[in-house]
Simulated assay, not measured.
Amino acid sequence: MVILNAFHLPGPSIMFIERVCVATDGSDIAVQAAQMGALLARAGAGRMVAVSVAQPHFSMPDSGAAVPDTRAEFLRAHEAARAHVETVRRIADAAGVSCEWATPLSSVPGPEIVRIAEEQGCDLIVMGTHGPNDANRLFAGSVAQYVLANSTVPVLLLRVPREASRPEFGEFP
């Protein structure tokens, strides 16, 4: 499923893409989003910005347990984010596209993705979503939903289709 959130301007609706922001968490769908981003960037001016937000994960220690090593967790989160943008950079290189990168530190990735895309003058954000495929729930994951709802930059979301039964339609008069 592909979702494109773009604003419509009066007149011909031609969008020239000079710089594509690819947000990645290292998942398979994020790699597919990077490949799509590289294709779109190559068709335009050939520039990408890879973003992976370094997200440290902390938990409260049990009573009497040692306090977690925060420095080690920050380092782990940053190294994971660097590995994710390195994957995007290799995809961009293979497509003949230049690629800058950013690995900001935050526990909430959505605002950082939007901020970097806007600061870098990106024309499109491409990202994967792990959102549920249940009609009773939202169509996108929380990060993708945040970016889609709050970005002034058009957003292209890629999602892996899940196995689902086809909807049953009644007879039309």
Rank of each mutant, 00 (worst) to 15 (best):
V160I: 10
G11Q: 04
D134E: 14
A140Y: 11
Q35C: 06
V160D: 10
V31L: 13
A38E: 08
E119N: 07
A41D: 08
V2E: 09
D123L: 00
E73C: 09
T24L: 08
I3K: 09
G110S: 05
E86W: 01
L9F: 12
E163K: 13
P154W: 07
E163Q: 14
R166H: 11
F172C: 04
A54K: 05
P12E: 15
F169L: 10
T70M: 15
S13C: 12
V20G: 00
A33R: 07
V143T: 12
A33H: 03
A43S: 04
V143S: 06
E79W: 05
R82D: 11
L9C: 09
A45Y: 00
M36C: 05
L39Y: 07
P167W: 05
A43I: 00
V85G: 01
T103N: 04
A38V: 05
A117F: 07
F7P: 11
A23K: 02
P61H: 05
A140C: 10
L9P: 02
T129C: 04
A117Q: 02
L156M: 01
T152K: 02
F7R: 15
A95H: 00
A80W: 07
A77Q: 04
A38F: 04
L138W: 13
D62K: 15
R42V: 04
H57N: 01
M36T: 07
H84I: 05
A92D: 05
R71V: 11
G64P: 08
L138T: 14
V31N: 02
P154K: 01
E18H: 12
D62W: 10
A6I: 07
Q32N: 12
V67N: 07
M36Q: 03
A81C: 06
D25R: 05
L39F: 09
A149D: 11
Q55N: 08
V53I: 09
P111G: 01
G44K: 02
F58R: 13
T152Y: 06
R159A: 11
P167L: 12
I3S: 08
N5R: 14
G131A: 10
R166L: 14
N150Y: 10
E100H: 14
Q145S: 06
R82Y: 03
